[in-house]
């Protein structure tokens, strides 16, 4: 029963242009946030070397 209600809620929401637009924006922001979490960490490491003076 609750699944039907939930489905109806989303179907109604998606047919409402304003809610649809908001959901789409959130969808894109979620994708961007996911990409930042997955690939956003910078690499500031340097190559290791043995200092042998001059």
């Amino acid at each position: 029963m609750w699944i039907k209600r939930l489905t109806t809620f989303f179907t109604d929401a998606y047919t409402n242009p304003k809610i649809k637009a908001t959901l789409l924006v959130l969808y894109y922001l979620a994708i961007i946030a996911g990409l930042i979490i997955m690939y956003g960490k910078g690499d500031f490491s340097t190559v290791k070397f043995v200092y042998q003076g001059f």
Binding site: F44, T46, V47, K48, F49, V50, Y51
Partner: peptide
């Protein structure tokens, strides 16, 4: 190697 060791 010194340059690379300090390069970012």
């Amino acid at each position: 190697q010194y340059y690379a060791g300090n390069y970012t």
